[in-house]
Design a protein around this nucleic acid. Structure first.
Length: 810
RNA sequence: GCCCAGGUGGUGUAAUUGGUAGCCACGCAUCACUUAAAAUGAUGUGGGAGAAAUCCCGUGCCGGUUCGAGUCCGGCCCUGGGCACCA
């Protein structure tokens, strides 16, 4: 066996493929149908890690397989280059975000090329390139025109370490996703995208997508649609009433329990709170608000905390029966959900039950679980289930599910209620008080207010700052670029200032797949013709961490662009598959602080890319997580060595063993089906089985070529090397077609017929396919082992499953 | 608490979707080659009984359906993930 240097050989073929432009997908192909295989593009905060290798290797196996099966495959790659993590990394390494990011892109490009993946490099995108973010800004302007981007004052998550606002999606357990320290709540005016206006569509359209259940479920949970009603409670003794009745509005999903509402609770942030508070309760309420302020958001939402609150001294009327209802303030009611006020029904809500027990508030049962018995049971905690109404006047005896609608309907006629769906989802706060992002293309004029930058002036280039560190106080470092900030108002022409906030990185990545179809376009983000050829994306491979972030944002941006006529589809990704995570050898998430990071470059240097790639394919279903285990590499390494040794069995004249054709036929189908179903692990196992069988056989060149083609998607370099050096082919193996298999030949194979007595295996025999039941019966009855287990008894029943088993029942 | 995905040898996993449980590998053991080790090759490897043929048990637990259950149904336990004072 000749010496094989995988590193040298692999590099040679990578260069060869690149120079022959083997993997570039033309936009239009007469005989091949287009297929964009999208894998999430890498973020540029450092080097490529094992996770990237995992994703890109398995996707590449699929890309190569599709190409061999006649598809015009685009397998694009790019860099998610803007954003906070890259900026933080640059600060840490004493670099600038620009220099740091470009350096990473150079490194990562080199690393990506070492995978031997069939990326379409000329289509590469870099979100921090002005030619790219021009269109990110353009999308912002279009959304602004349609009222889908706006400026609004809200309570925002503020990370005191990163000194910037974070989206809800970037807050995990009340802490900043990146620094893991508790976020603060600040009231700020921010740029937002109106993602909530698509909330229903984002839930409903999931049903047509071929996505994993967990991803769909995560999005549905995140959007948190709940269907109920808004009910108005007229206010009594209102302090600053300007005449006319005023109301406190509550949201409820349990309008059927309205007769049981014995008090009302406002969130501490409720705008009407101080107006409802009576003079004698003023001090008490203020004191309570002080206490609440001191708590972090994390403490406030802790469910096992004992409930607190105070009576405001104010009263409202229950609109259904005009009973006087006291109004309390308590922080178990959230200011940012629903109307920030709830009707409290202690008999039928666990939280209200706990609160009323603590403060001695009345509990009135209005839903009886076992109606029409004479007496309802005495409750020892809240009854939240279904039942029939009691103590509810004309609604007595009606099922709660029905009463819900009837009660709302009655109040609706008087203008006191309406059916309403509300959502947990909030609008997407996209402004960031940080340097490394696409500037928001708006100009603030003291006279005319905010004005969009004219389209012709795009891109608004990010100035190169030496002092780009974030500042306390909620302003972006861009504010320090005095000359950059100065601008003319696009409306009145007067002296004005640029918006200094930049966009969340997730805006950049929410449309990158559109750009792949037409990456050099200067006039549009992508031409409609080209998008029509490639989109929507037929298959998107990525990580679960984007279930409620990137995937939701990309769906929103697509729907928004669709609404304004810029794209022809309303869902970007038809199929989605999530890959697992490669953990450290200790089974924990790889991280520098744990010291369990395995560097892919080092493994590739040791074994070569083919081995590392194939190892990832072989691990198991790619949706699962795996601990890195270098032992598993040795199995693949041995296999590939044996593949190289196998050339010794190649026969010179073209007389081959006939059974080889049958074997190849069988595995061509098997391995092909596995790849088609994205079952790469069993595909590799199939190749191993195939080699195990072939190793004792003599092959013709054609048969050997077939074997190499089956290997080609998994170990592209070695397959090419053998294809061109041993078989002396001039054309790349990766331009060849996937071998055809013959159904008729499959039918000729022998199968194992299982012989059972009472469902237990007693023997098995090799037979040809398609045996009749009578033939199978006589084989079984003549079998010694079966005879023994029948014990002379006559079977009462025969169960014959063709080509599988015969079961004799006694 | 609600939602989703899982639970199979010492390990990663496989099982034609209701039909031989453990394929393919890793690891381990023994042997061969070697002065020795590595590499490579051969054999064995779910548990138990047995010299062997063979038999019994076995896919988180308990029950059910079926000629037949890792797979379907009912109830539970555990692990991972998402949401969560969301009214």
């Amino acid at each position: 066996m000749s010496k094989y240097n995988p590193i040298k050989t692999e590099k040679r073929w990578q260069k060869n493929w690149e120079s022959k432009k083997l993997h570039l997908a033309p936009d239009f192909s007469k005989e091949r149908t287009n297929f964009m295989l999208l894998a999430e593009f890498p973020y540029t905060s450092g080097n490529l890690h094992m996770g990237h290798w995992f994703t890109y290797s398995i996707a590449d196996i699929y890309a190569r397989y599709l190409r061999m099966n006649g598809k015009n495959v685009m397998y694009p790659i790019g860099f998610d280059a803007f954003g906070l993590p890259a900026e933080n990394a640059a600060i840490k390494h004493g670099s600038t975000p620009y220099a740091w990011t470009k350096q990473n892109i150079r490194n990562m490009t080199k690393q990506l090329k070492s995978i031997g993946a069939t990326f379409d490099w000329p289509r590469v995108v870099d979100t921090s390139d002005p030619d790219y973010y021009k269109w990110t800004q353009w999308i912002f302007l279009k959304l602004y025109e349609k009222g889908l981007a706006y400026r609004g004052e809200t309570m925002v998550n503020w990370c005191p370490k990163d000194k910037t606002v974070l989206a809800n999606e970037q807050v995990v357990n009340g802490c900043c996703e990146r620094c893991d320290i508790p976020v603060e709540q600040r009231k700020l005016t921010q740029w937002m995208f109106k993602i909530t206006s698509f909330a229903d569509a984002l839930v409903n359209d999931l049903k047509d997508l071929d996505w994993p259940e967990d991803t769909k479920a995560a999005q549905v949970n995140w959007i948190g649609r709940s269907e109920g009603a808004l009910i108005k409670f007229p206010i009594l003794n209102f302090k600053f009433s300007k005449g006319g009745q005023e109301y406190i509005e509550v949201f409820t999903t349990r309008a059927d329990t309205l007769f049981g509402a014995t008090y009302l609770v406002l969130a501490p942030e409720h705008p009407m709170l101080m107006k409802l508070t009576s003079d004698e309760n003023l001090n008490k309420v203020n004191q309570y608000l002080e206490e609440v302020k001191k708590k972090t958001e994390l403490e406030r939402v802790h469910t096992d905390r004992s409930k607190t609150g105070v009576f405001t001294g104010g009263y409202v009327l229950n609109p259904i029966n005009n009973e006087r209802v006291p109004v309390w303030v308590a922080d178990y009611v959230l200011g940012h959900y629903g109307t920030g006020a709830v009707m409290a029904v202690p008999a039928h809500d666990e939280r209200d039950w706990e609160f009323s027990k603590k403060f001695g508030l009345p509990i009135k049962m209005v839903v009886c679980p076992n109606y029409p018995e004479e007496t309802c049971p005495v409750l020892n905690n809240a009854y939240i289930g279904e039942g029939h109404l009691v103590a509810s006047e004309e609604f007595d005896g009606i099922r709660s599910s029905e009463a819900k609608n009837k009660i709302v309907e009655k109040l609706r006629e008087k203008g006191l209620a309406e059916f309403k769906k509300i959502y947990r989802l909030h609008d997407w706060i996209l402004s960031r008080q940080r340097y490394w992002g696409a500037p928001i293309p708006m100009i603030h004029c003291p006279k005319c207010g905010y004005q969009p930058v004219p389209e012709a002036d795009l891109p608004v280039k990010l100035p190169e700052l030496t002092d780009f560190l974030p500042v306390e106080g909620g302003r972006s470092p861009l504010a320090r670029a005095k000359s950059w900030v100065k601008a003319k108002c696009s409306k009145c022409g007067g002296q004005a200032e640029r918006e200094t906030d930049t966009m969340d990185t997730f805006v950049d990545s929410s449309w990158y797949f559109l750009r792949y179809t037409d990456p050099k376009n200067k006039k549009e983000f992508a031409s409609k013709d080209k998008m029509a050829k490639w989109l929507p994306v037929p298959l998107y491979i990525g990580g679960r961490e984007h279930n409620t972030m990137h995937l939701l944002y990309a769906r929103f941006v697509t729907k928004a662009l669709n609404k304004l006529g810029a794209v022809e589809f309303s869902e970007p990704f038809l199929s989605r598959r999530n890959h697992g995570v490669i953990m450290g050898p200790d089974g924990k998430r790889m991280s520098k602080s744990r010291g369990n990071v395995v560097d892919p470059d080092a493994e590739v240097a040791k074994y070569g890319a083919d081995t590392v790639r194939m190892n990832f394919a072989f691990l198991g279903p790619f949706e699962q997580d795996y601990a890195w285990n270098s032992n598993s590499l040795s199995g693949i390494s041995r296999f590939l060595n044996r593949v190289r040794g196998f050339i010794g069995k190649l026969e010179k004249p073209k007389r081959g063993d006939e059974s080889v054709d049958q074997i190849l036929n069988k595995y061509t189908k098997e391995i092909g089906d596995d790849i088609k179903d994205l079952k790469f692990n069993t595909g590799v196992s199939g190749l191993m089985k195939l080699l195990n069988v072939l190793e004792d056989k003599w092959l013709t060149k054609k048969q050997y070529g077939t074997f190499l083609k089956l290997l080609a998607p998994f170990a592209p370099h070695l397959a090419e090397e053998l294809w061109q050096t041993v078989l002396k082919n001039k054309r790349s193996i990766h331009s060849e077609s996937w071998p055809k298999y013959d159904e008729a030949l499959l039918a000729e194979e022998l199968i194992t017929l299982v012989l059972q007595v009472n469902g237990k295996l007693r023997d098995s025999v090799k037979v040809k396919k398609g045996l009749s039941e009578d033939e199978a019966k006589s084989i079984a009855l003549a079998n010694e082992s079966i005879k023994k287990h029948l014990g002379g008894k006559e079977p009462v029943k025969y169960i014959y499953v063709r080509d599988r088993l015969i079961n004799l029942v006694i």
